[in-house]
Design a protein around this nucleic acid. Structure first.
Lengths: 315, 315
DNA sequence: CTGGCCCTATACCCTGGAGGCATGGATGAT
DNA sequence: ATCATCCATGCCTCCAGGGTATAGGGCCAG
């Protein structure tokens, strides 16, 4: 019968995240009583109890939990509508692409160069985005396509792999593991791993050699708890290597990065069972306009032609 | 800055579909002037012209076209939030499944039987749904899982194939093609094909042997126009065979249906290049709760064990 | 036990905006 | 020329979302 409104979802999410009506109200820029009322009305309309109010704080019920995830995606989709439409209305049709710093100026730049040379291709914009922002930018419509470096959260996106390369452990030259010629993920358990600035401590596990994404289909995999330890925060690859060199952490990095930074104070060792480092081009699930198609095609063409001429990896 | 509201999206979609403000307003249950104003405001807020009003009717601009698709999915997601949450709030946790009539009572019934016997499995409900409603029911949250018979529109869903079987042409015994031992899709061009009640004439092509779904990834396929002709409307398999027997149409049906209905007045002939008839279990993209996982597992188990003992197909 | 403290819920008022009604203006059909 | 059709504008009404004030109920310090 009655659909929910965006406002209600925002209110609900705020309360569910703050677990406190007053703080949530403040965050929303309204006062507390209207918020209480709105949530009550919401619960009454849905006929479902979303929160367990027990006088000292608020808890989310099971139903509230499912609503929370649903509401988050719904809000995402709603904001995407506006962004996409605005962009579609631009006088000059523009394909917006994004990637993280190193890739944006390198691979993405080359792809765009090839793509822009095609007849009929629109204006292309390259946005450099920060830590793991790429997927979100595509999801909420700020970008049409992105180069993602795995592992990352590809929910809601379609993607096509471009390059894949093994990952190696970067160790201080004097590290005990540096004497081994190859390693396994389990060898790194207990080691401190650098965090990219912007990453939460939990996200550190992404760099511990396992993919976050569950395998599709039958892979009904339970996650094994990771036992690497969050280490110092770094802003760029140079900083990361510096931290390793100082013995403050151990990092898993793509082989090409190791190649480009051969140093006597750092030992690079292949990690056999680490998930490979891949770069993929991604776009909104289901969006397959001609413009997007030919961009994806360009990305594939550029990487396959480069792959053949690439230098051999360090061993 | 300012997010759109659900109401605005509904208004927009109504106008875009009706291409007429008055009719759209009527459909929305409001009068025409507020609708005009709402759309104007929407355009002003987005800074994008959505409609081309040229005094006699309304046309959708390019930007409006993209907004239309975005808005449709957004509305879908919004209504899903409410449905899912309501369902999650039920006192008795329940897994809702759906399939079309024949499959619901047969395969789905057996799957549910197996699943319900598992320890810790919740209450299961089987909803019988009509023509191609299954995917929509999962998309909008009325069902958790569905058995889809291909070809069908799986956008927004994850799925896992269960059974696959060839499709055969059902021909009147006296039909000229009945003298051939095998056919190809092109042989059926120009033939009348029955329509399932509820299907639009265009959807008739789904039964003409080609898949609607574009191949994923690099398959940037253009659709070939189909040249089969919509025939009489039928409600169930028996009716379909009756129509064929009377010489009013020719149908492509799964081999098992042919097997179960061997008749002297109908000839079944394999069609070599028809896309196979497959049944898949599908669920909302990304939803992978333990409950859902084990249901999918049950579905796979049941079909793989049945597949081995299945009777051989007619030839 | 009691008085502050920290929550959320209730009561009451006020205002912005959604919607109805009447009408204007433009264009095509007859 | 007249009418029909269709979208836009102006004006009014009314409700729901929001603010302020306050009540009510646990928790803790003294």
């Amino acid at each position: 019968m009655d659909d929910l409104e965006v406002r209600e979802l925002r209110y609900f999410v705020a309360v569910a995240e703050e677990l406190n009506f007053s703080r949530a109200a403040e965050r929303l820029g309204i006062s507390q009583p209207p918020l209480s009322r709105a949530i009550s009305q919401l619960e009454r309309r849905l006929g479902v109890q979303l929160f367990e109010r027990d006088t000292r704080g608020v808890a989310v019920t099971a139903a509230g939990q499912t609503m929370l995830t649903e509401a988050r995606t719904a809000l995402e989709v709603m904001s995407r509508v506006a962004r996409r439409t605005r962009r579609a209305g631009w006088a000059v049709p523009t394909l917006v692409t994004t990637a993280k710093p190193g890739i944006a100026s390198g691979l993405l730049g080359r792809i765009v160069e090839v793509y822009a040379a095609l007849p009929g291709s629109p204006r292309v914009e390259i946005v450099v985005s920060g830590y793991r922002q790429q997927a979100d930018m595509v999801r909420d419509g700020r970008a049409d396509a992105a180069l993602l470096s795995s592992p990352c959260d590809e929910r809601g996106l379609d993607s096509e792999p471009l390059t894949t390369e093994p990952r190696v452990a970067a160790l201080p030259a004097a590290h005990r593991l540096a004497r081994r010629s190859t390693l396994r993920c389990s060898d790194l358990h207990g080691e401190r791993m650098p965090r990219w600035s912007g990453a939460t401590p939990e996200e550190c596990v992404y760099w511990s050699g396992r993919d976050r994404t569950d395998g599709p289909g039958r892979g009904v995999g339970a996650h094994q708890p990771e036992v690497t330890v969050p280490g110092p925060v770094v802003n760029d690859p140079t900083e990361l290597l510096e931290v390793v060199s100082l013995g403050q952490a151990v990092a898993l990095i793509p082989a090409s990065l190791a190649e480009a930074n051969l140093r006597t104070d750092i030992a690079y060792r292949p990690v056999d069972d680490a998930s490979p480092y891949t770069v993929a081009v991604a776009w909104t699930r289901g969006a397959r306009s001609p413009v997007l198609n030919s961009f994806v095609r360009s990305a594939i063409d550029v990487t396959t032609s480069e792959q053949g001429t690439a230098a051999p990896h360090v061993s």
